[in-house]
Design a protein around this nucleic acid. Structure first.
Length: 112
DNA sequence: CGGATCGTGCGTCACCAAGG
DNA sequence: CCTTGGTGACGCACGATCCG
């Protein structure tokens, strides 16, 4: 029916360039070697926690997308397989009916 | 036409399993 | 033990369709 979620996605998250900017190493090193070489202040700690959270959310967002894509492909493959099997079943059923007829009327197709 | 309902995708949270 | 990625569950937003 309605398949237009892409619009929502692009509006809210856009591309993943932001994700590449916030790499774990870069955010971590910012705190480990803060500007004045001293222990991080409470302010810096909360900022770091916030950065970590944002990073985790971004990664999980991407994971969820991949997960959904894989699941969709899997369902599609199952549907394809189902269609093939149903088709095969139909052909075999038809063949069986022909063989039954052959046996019934004693045509050469009936080998038993 | 406008509200109700349905189908779909998304982001987030919580949990789990695997790896370091 | 901590980190990380995968995934089920939940709620939300949005477009399509139905119906009075």
């Amino acid at each position: 029916m309605a398949v237009t979620g892409d619009e929502t996605e692009s509006a809210t998250t856009g591309d993943m360039s932001a994700y590449q900017i916030h790499s774990p190493t870069s955010s971590l090193s910012q705190v480990m070697s803060n500007s004045h070489g001293s222990l991080p202040s409470p302010q810096e700690l909360t900022e770091e926690a916030s950065r970590k959270r944002e990073l985790r959310l971004m990664k999980n967002r991407e994971s969820a997308r991949q997960c959904r894509r894989r699941r969709k492909e899997y369902v599609r493959s199952l549907e394809t397989r189902l269609a093939m099997i149903e088709n095969q079943n139909k052909k075999l059923t038809e063949e069986l009916e022909h063989l039954k007829e052959s046996c019934l009327y004693g045509t050469p197709d009936c080998s038993s």
